[in-house]
Design a protein around this nucleic acid. Sequence first.
DNA 1: GTCTATACTCAGATAGAC
DNA 2: GTCTATCTGAGTATAGAC
Lengths: 185, 185
Amino acid sequence: MRPQKVQDIEMLNGLMSVFRSKGYEGASMAELSEATGLKKASLYHRYPGGKKDMTLAVLVYLEENIKKHVYNVLTDSEKGKKVRLEEAIRNIKTLYDGGSEVCIYRSLSLDSGIELFGAQIKQGIHLILNGFKQFGLASGMSETDATEKANQTFIEIQGSLVMSKALQTTKPFIDSLEKIRLRYI
Amino acid sequence: MRPQKVQDIEMLNGLMSVFRSKGYEGASMAELSEATGLKKASLYHRYPGGKKDMTLAVLVYLEENIKKHVYNVLTDSEKGKKVRLEEAIRNIKTLYDGGSEVCIYRSLSLDSGIELFGAQIKQGIHLILNGFKQFGLASGMSETDATEKANQTFIEIQGSLVMSKALQTTKPFIDSLEKIRLRYI
DNA sequence: GTCTATACTCAGATAGAC
DNA sequence: GTCTATCTGAGTATAGAC
């Protein structure tokens, strides 16, 4: 077997960056090819289903990342609450490159994307919501309080990312993360 | 002069609905034609610059709507504060069809859209931010408080719309509007 | 102003050599 | 596994009749 020219992780990062900034319809095979360093035909060899397969692979990869860097961190009973919270928030900041990158769930949430990837998107979002909910419960909140606060956290992350993107400044995102951190302490 | 088959407002509503749900790249001339009831060639007659012209027309139209139904309502010193706030929130609810429609600023905020329409998008958003800021100032808030609260309001509207769309339930949006209303009273 | 018909470009996708 | 070359259809856009 001839070795892969580009490793999976590198590929997925390239694909993600294009889907994130261009959306599903806006991402062309030419761009995906350039971003990954593989020619179009080679991409089809790796992902026989084309763009749709690539997007699904990216969503699975992203979900693993969220699980590892957000959910598991927030629910890791070995560490203290403050440490967990701050690590999770730091990781979220990294995930969105400090507010200059949008959420791929948002880029893919136009009609065509929801139709094709709605299930995956829901799953990833619930992972984040659940992480914060578990964290709230472990901090002694009631079920309703923990759920409510997790929802609010998610809303502020997403809303501040929209605002940051549209106004082309990362300040809203940075400020919102700090507000979220303080609220949980 | 032969009369227009479709009036401007009707056209703009048709165009907006497509751009909103499909984004800029995702909206095809075929769909725009179907949504407006005009054939492709006729659309080019009205908007010689094609899709780009149509999008700009939609953004101008939307800004007029925001001015009329949100900004002017919030800053209308003739009416009482409670009345203004509740009317503005009701209008915002209508604007997003109760949470089942996304914000077109978000749909157009992928890279290609920002590049083409960034200025218009910024302007529309600032109109909303300013409306709530003026409202806060008129309610006796400090400059910083009013700005901060307006930003938070915008973030919650956008974030809850993202969440509503992704999870396919309007509850987050409805709940957030109510939370915003209570916070200003 | 609106239409049918068509030109042209570029997208996604495949065949087959290496 | 990767590539060059190519097919096919969809996309934007235009020409010209009514």
